[in-house]
């Protein structure tokens, strides 16, 4: 009994330490005021954020998973034909070969093609993005990202809200998933209990208990 308790607690403590000591968690933390966090997490600002993105960021950045391409590519007459052939979200190989000239132009201006921002929200988190967009040089010295909307934290938070809406499922979808999770777990627990009750009945009848 003591041994069982000892090994159970040891195992649980071990997995708990491994869990909180996650090697892949971000190593730097960034500050973000609560009011802007709320904006970034709110789906309602995503639409406005997209407009702000188009005004401030789209000159160089793409959000391919939302069919948003850098302005020069968006203006290219070939884009529409390609989208009709491959769907709105172009495959990366098609995109990179069809718009080689535009991408090379961007590369020449910045030293590398500015990254696609489809999954950047999950990769970097809202706190990092908030600080980086506001003051790029302070967070990442030497970066070729210009300070486009410095001093406008609310707009920045709205842009982050848009990027989040591309990276993450919407809040209604999240609610659905939560419900699905609760349903699945409840089903498994109920089935487990029922099997256990059924088993003890069978064993009683067999005289094995």
């Amino acid at each position: 009994m003591i041994k069982t308790a000892f090994f159970t607690i040891l195992t649980l403590v071990f997995f708990y330490i491994i869990w909180i000591n996650n090697v892949f968690a971000p190593h730097e933390t960034y500050e973000m005021p609560e009011q802007y966090k709320k904006i970034a997490e709110d789906d309602r600002y995503a639409k406005e954020g997209k407009q702000l993105f188009e005004q401030n960021c789209q000159a160089c950045h793409s959000v391919r998973y939302d069919a948003v391409y850098p302005s020069a590519i968006q203006a290219n007459p070939n884009l529409k034909a390609l989208q009709e052939q491959y769907g709105k979200v172009l495959p990366r190989d098609v995109y990179e070969s069809a718009f080689q000239a535009e991408l090379a132009q961007l590369k020449e201006s910045f030293g590398k093609v500015p990254p696609d921002l489809s999954t950047i929200y999950i990769a970097k988190g809202k706190e990092y993005l908030f600080n980086f967009i506001l003051e790029p040089q302070k967070v990442l010295p030497g970066t070729s990202m210009p300070a486009v909307i410095t001093g406008k934290p609310e707009e920045t938070a709205k842009i982050i809200s848009y990027l989040r809406s591309v990276s993450e499922p919407s809040s209604s979808e999240k609610a659905k998933r939560t419900l699905m999770g609760i349903g699945t777990i409840a089903y498994l627990v109920v089935m487990g209990v029922l099997i256990w009750i059924w088993r003890s009945r069978i064993l009683k009848r067999m005289g094995l208990h």
């Binding site: 892949f24 990254p115 939560t178 699905m180 999770g181 699945t184 487990g192």
Partner: peptide
């Protein structure tokens, strides 16, 4: 079978509610 149901319940608890832990953020950059 009853134990497996319990195991699956724990498993799906993590799948539905703590998934971000198993998909490290750095891997969302190409």
């Amino acid at each position: 079978a009853a134990y497996v149901m319990g195991y699956l319940a724990v498993f799906f608890f993590f799948v539905f509610f703590y998934m971000h832990h198993f998909l490290p953020p750095d891997n969302f950059e190409p």
